[in-house]
Design a binder for these strands. Structure first.
Lengths: 194, 194
DNA sequence: AGCATAGGCCAACAAGTGTTGACCTCGGGG
DNA sequence: CCCCGAGGTCAACACTTGTTGGCCTATGCT
């Protein structure tokens, strides 16, 4: 619908490609890397397993294509001062509820090194720069970003992967009310000292 | 060395059984459930794969035996009032650094439902009761315990599973200095309200 | 000493995996 | 109209997995 801006030649098989990617995300998110077999993905996409190979080369390539996504973190400069924690938490929750790519990434990252590497990349490409701009001493940025990611990924883990019942039943507003001050603290509070 | 108190008949194969369990924990912790093959475990334990089946029935049984462990959380009554957060964090860090069972459990829990169920059991059997005794309104205990587990497991995830470099390089004392107030807050602070 | 038995190894099975290549089948441009 | 290539299916490959049963070995009891 927008041929001029996108360099893609708009092949006739685009619908199938999308179906494969969608099924792949769902299976990876539900089963992890090993148990999400190409046959199961192909079955769910209602096509033949060999099509997956034709379009994505091999399973690694399929996974890479399925989790190629941008977090679109808000720019650090545009954040209201003092509200960085709240903004981050709501943004994360929103992304996580909307699409299952992040759940797939987290589940795969726990057992597959390519997945873990992808998570490390997201961390250092997107969260770290933000921390560098927000937190007082840039030298402390990596540690502070690590603390923030531990808090946020910990919530995702217990809520979307391990499915602890109380974590699942928490309302998004309640999560924000609890986590936002913590994240804000990790980003901007003075170092507590050992 | 203590035959009277232990009901185990002290079989001659106990050394082998221990070797299998040790290798199993190491492989599960490093590779997760699927990629930790019985053959790999047997090879590391320097015995035949069929011995694993003989002693533990099947792979599920081996996993169950390998992760049958008690967190040994300190009793809520014995905690110094106001220091529950610090005690919990140091205790968790200590357990996690000491043996790899917890890493195995976390890694497997991300993809295997038996593993996730085991984690949910530990949560509700060990952390929840503690929260019920420590936090002001017992009705809020599940939510508060969930927040605490999100913070603690998030740290374990980024440090021992995903291995974010800044999380790996954090010193235990620094982790405690940052996390103890957070955990204490989640346990005892008044509800922030949505 | 003799032997039952627990400890251990070897080879094989059936099932499921990623991956490949040969083969159909249309749809649109010459 | 024909045909050619992209889209799609089928069957098979080589390999790995969990699991099994038969066989050997040596330990400890009588």
């Amino acid at each position: 619908m927008n041929e001029s801006t996108s360099p893609a030649p708009a092949r006739r098989s685009d619908a199938t490609r999308r179906a494969i990617l969608e099924a792949a995300r769902e299976r990876f998110a539900a089963d992890g890397y090993e148990r999400a077999t190409i046959r199961a993905i192909a079955h769910q996409a209602k096509i033949d397993p060999s099509m997956v190979m034709r379009y994505y080369g091999n399973k690694e390539g399929l996974f890479a294509a399925a989790v190629a996504i941008d977090l679109k973190l808000p720019d650090a400069a545009s954040l209201p001062r003092g509200e960085e924690g709240r903004t981050l938490v709501t943004h994360f929750l929103d992304q996580w509820e909307r699409n299952e790519v992040l759940t797939a990434l987290l589940r795969v990252g726990a057992t597959n090194d390519a997945g873990a590497e992808r998570m490390r990349g997201i961390f250092s490409d997107q969260l770290l720069p933000l921390a560098r701009r927000v937190c007082p001493d840039p030298e402390q940025a990596p540690a502070r970003a690590a603390l923030v990611s531990a808090q946020l990924l910990g919530l995702a883990l217990t809520r979307y992967v391990l499915r602890f019942p109380p974590a699942v039943h928490l309302h998004p507003e309640e999560i924000t009310a609890w986590l936002a001050p913590t994240v804000q603290h990790y980003l901007t509070a003075p170092h507590p000292g050992p």
